[in-house]
Amino acid sequence: MNTQNHSKDSHHSLITINGVTRVYGQGSAAMYALRGVDFSIHTGEFVAVMGPSGSGKSTCMNILGCLDTPTDGEYLLEGVNVGKLSRDQRALLRRNYLGFVFQGFNLLNRTSALENVELPLIYRGTPIAERRIRAKEALASVGLEGWEAHTPGELSGGQQQRVAIARAIVTHPRVLLADEPTGNLDTARSREIMELLTSFNRERNITIIMVTHEAEMAAYAGRRIHFIDGVIDNGQDTERKNA
């Protein structure tokens, strides 16, 4: 094992995944979701994670999002070995470095767009006045100026996903993890969301890792990682041609 090389890697990689496996269950009932995965992601990249269902891409996203830990191998986020951290320590990592966008938006019902965007700042202990200003700015940056008081029920799917993106970027995260962000949207809305993500990636240098199964959406990313049967399919691992 050339761990030395990998740890040297981590100095210029934001994310390093070394021989990560994830096993559910034990003994004969053991189910391998990931069977030894290696890759790294640099700051400012836009990576699309693809693969059929059951290929391990969701498991990988959960590990990248510090929601799950590898059974074996290591995941370094800015040189920190996430697998060794406690549940609360990982929560603090998520709070301070990560932003999440989900397929189902996951906004709080009957809660205004502004309050939804403020939520991560509440957990960070940001004072209320500053919180208001930053949440308004974030909503403006996703084109929802004037919609602050609307609740998710009063917003279209596209608008709800914009609120969710505003919530994810309001903390200026290092990494934005998007799990099928366009899965519940029509093509026109999906394109708008992808344009928005691309602009945050380029203008704010936010690293984006996005799970998608739509080739059109994956095409917005600079790099695509294909999963199949718990490993990365290197044959399809392609660099963006017009990068």
């Binding site: 549940r87 603090l92 998520r94 999440f100 939520l119």
Partner: peptide, 10 residues
């Protein structure tokens, strides 16, 4: 789940 993902502690 959302709150935990966003970084709420137990």
């Amino acid at each position: 789940g959302t709150r935990l993902a966003i970084g709420a502690l137990e």
